[in-house]
Design a protein around this nucleic acid. Structure first.
Lengths: 332, 332
DNA sequence: ATGAAAGCGCTAACAC
DNA sequence: GTGTTAGCGCTTTCAT
């Protein structure tokens, strides 16, 4: 590979002039510009990004932490982040955590080592203290997550409110025995805590109770959903929920599949409400009532905020687009 | 940020000793190891990856080019690549092209600038000559793509054969008027050329012809599929295909949706065969007959080959897993 | 076993 | 306008 030195030699100029040319400085005579360009072309020169970075301390790679890219919510989020980042001249280093704090820590170490200039976290596994510590090495922006008691900036939606609204919607529709599915395990500060809060608030306002056996924790995919449906349907009629609020569309789809397979009907035998509005929810046998997340807006705002932080300017987050909405289809 | 110099000073040693410690060289006395470790801890030191890279010329970032991450085929591919890369100590720089050759070129420039050590291309927009030129700067591995007349290594499946097989399957089932959907435009060397070849071979062996109006080019998503279905259904009965072979599941799903919406039936009024076996194809109203791609194997093999190329060892691709298969469901 | 010193490819004062 | 030079933080000879 040719270096800036080779170019300078070939053009009969000094490295600094070539460097100036590279960095679009003013005040270089046109004939020299031409000579440099020609030398570069002949040598097929490209500046070493590494050397530039070491010297100028400018890094244009943003780290993105996601739990799993195959989840449509995250792939759409990454899509939005990537497009926005590219627009500002940044690249994405992507890392899946699969909910493993070790992977998360690896990315945070990359921040410390300056492999990435900043990190957008779309999932959190570490303690807030750990993340706060690392934020001294570069900006960290939380996307669709929050960390109470910290100063870490975040872009997020009001999941508690929409959960409350969706639960009320179910109650108004006449469903009073509502089961609940969550990916977390109902610990405070854990996954889906906000959704759970909204759900519980709506129930208690209507003085409805929820039985322990109607609560399903650590359910994530279609198979889990099918299992949940089997459990529900095996309960005696008078003890059986008439609706399920699932914190995940995938689980909701599994539930619907299983109910239909048993020759029963949705929503007559069991109503199902999901969360995410994943692409496939509108095309299944019984289209799913679910909650739409402003995925693109979340990605765009998180990235804009990150870029602003990186470039030392202020950015006022546009909250108008960050709203969740209930999509009513056929499953409720 | 503390540097190696600071650590050396604090430990009362030279930078070279610290460097040796960092690189796990033998022959460092235990007491000095301890002193260094302690100094590092106190200073909260992390070596600058950039400086290390500039000096040692070792880069552990692999560039991955994909057309769009929101397409499940690609997100599953990236998932497999990321896991495999991580296992070997590499990271992924991901870039979507949205079929724009400019984006592709940007990644290839990153290869030239040593931002990435190698590039895995899961989609190709540039001329083979361009890609061959860039391959002198680092390994390029094609994944699920081929470039005839070049030496660029590739991991791919026999799409021609499965297309042939799937078309024969349709013919054997009694469908003799088969329409065809492709994301490309039927140019030689273009998108889906192999699939088209297999399709045509099967037709011509059975002396079946295909009318021009039964061919749909540049169709990509569900909406395109719905349009295709509308066009097909508006044809007079005697001139209407009885089956569609779609090069994309998404288009196939759109077709099914539209047929059902018009009160007609799949496969009675129109049989539909897709390509990809995307997750949602098994859960739609009429589960789709389609072709399964060995996504994980493609990703794993491409990454293993890339790592081998990067580390200068040979790797024999495991072709046993790289097989396509017809998944028969209810749409044919 | 440890240290001194050169230099990876580039940028940015500082001189002229 | 252009050249000289001193590093950025690290690895790696070459001494000792």
């Amino acid at each position: 590979m040719a270096t800036i030195k080779d170019v300078a030699k070939k053009a009969g100029l000094s490295v600094s002039t070539v460097s100036r040319f590279l960095n679009h400085h003013p005040y270089i005579s046109d004939d020299k510009k031409e000579r440099i360009q020609q030398a570069m072309d002949e040598l097929n020169y490209a500046p070493s990004a590494i050397a530039t970075q070491l010297r100028s301390k400018k890094c244009t790679t943003i780290g993105v932490l996601i739990s799993r890219i195959t989840n449509p919510f995250f792939s759409y989020l990454v899509d939005a982040i990537e497009k926005q980042a590219k627009e500002h001249g940044y690249q994405l280093l992507i890392m899946q955590t699969y909910d493993d704090p070790k992977a998360e820590l690896k990315m945070l170490e990359y921040l410390k080592q300056q492999v990435v200039a900043g990190v957008i976290m779309t999932s959190i596994e570490s303690d807030s203290q750990v993340i706060e510590d690392y934020s001294s090495y570069g900006p960290i922006v939380l996307c669709n997550e929050k960390l109470d008691g910290t100063e870490i900036p975040n872009i997020s939606t009001n999941q508690e409110a929409i959960s409350y609204e969706a639960t009320n919607y179910l109650i108004q529709k006449g469903y009073h025995k509502i089961a609940y599915c969550t990916g977390g395990n109902l610990t405070i500060g854990g996954h889906g805590q906000q959704r759970t809060k909204g759900f519980e608030r709506a129930l208690s306002e209507h003085e409805l109770s929820i039985k322990n056996k109607w609560i399903f924790k650590q359910v994530h995919n279609m198979e889990d959903g099918q299992k949940v449906a089997r459990e529900i349907l095996s309960l005696p009629k008078n003890d059986r929920p008439d609706a399920v609020f699932s914190g995940s569309d995938e689980v909701a789809i599994g539930i619907i599949q299983e109910v239909l397979q048993q020759g029963l009907h949705v929503p007559e035998d069991l109503a199902v409400l999901g969360f995410d509005n994943q692409p496939s929810t509108s095309i299944i046998a019984v289209p799913l009532t679910t909650i739409n997340q402003p995925t693109t807006a979340l990605g765009i705002e998180a990235t804009k905020l990150m870029v602003a932080l990186l470039e030392g300017v202020t950015y006022k987050v546009n909250k108008k687009e960050l709203i969740l909405s209930l999509i009513e289809r056929k499953s409720t």
